[in-house]
Amino acid sequence: MTGFRTLLYKEVTRFWKVAFQTVAAPVLTALLYLLVFSHTLDRHVRVFPDVPYTAFLVPGLAMMSALQNAFANASSSLIQSKITGNIVFLLLPPLSHREFFAAYVLASVLRGALVGIGVLLVTLPLIDLRLVAPAWAFAFLLLGGAVLGTLGTIAGIWADKFDQLAAFQNFLIMPLTFLSGVFYSIHSLPDFWLKVSHLNPVFYMIDGFRYGFFGHSDVPPEQSLLVVSGFLLLLAWLTLAMLKSGYKLRH
């Protein structure tokens, strides 16, 4: 356990030492999105009948930022360690693949949650947001962070160069998070894109998280929880198998 705790401590300290870049900056970005979109759309768009657009937008933005940062944490930490070579100091000690996995994913969940909660806090003075079912919101924040942290771990192990990682981030993670119903309800989409959206696991994370605030959602939260948990288990299994075999880390 000491090995796991130390690696978790290291991973958390790593992003916390540069918190301006890893926590404050994404919170500011989300705030800018909010200001621009609420100014242009608030009077024209209403997704849920009793919820103003700005209020609808905030949980989605918070969750999207949390997910992107959970991914960024594990992936950038791993690629930096690989490229500078200091990952050797993690490969020499008797850390098991489970300890390695758990530490990277938990640190990612933590950074994601800090960013997500940060976005909610800075928007508090601007909007009237109620948390109807906080347990649901919290569960999706943690599970969503864990899924993206796991994806970040996979990407960090797989990528040999920064531009491979950037490709993973820009061509997979960004579209998945942007097209997940953060800015709209998927029921406003044409039938085909509605179906496509149902294949996006990030949609269920956003939708479930939003349920915690408004008590309504595009699909029942139980279904979202099942999809997100199933996805997490599948990715965790894959990542553990990669780590156990030494894929790209032990040659």
Binding site: T2, G3, T6, K10, F89, P93, P94, L95
Partner: peptide, 10 residues
């Protein structure tokens, strides 16, 4: 200190 921790030493 961290390297010690990876080996389970506090």
């Amino acid at each position: 200190v961290m390297q010690s921790g990876y080996y389970g030493i506090r």
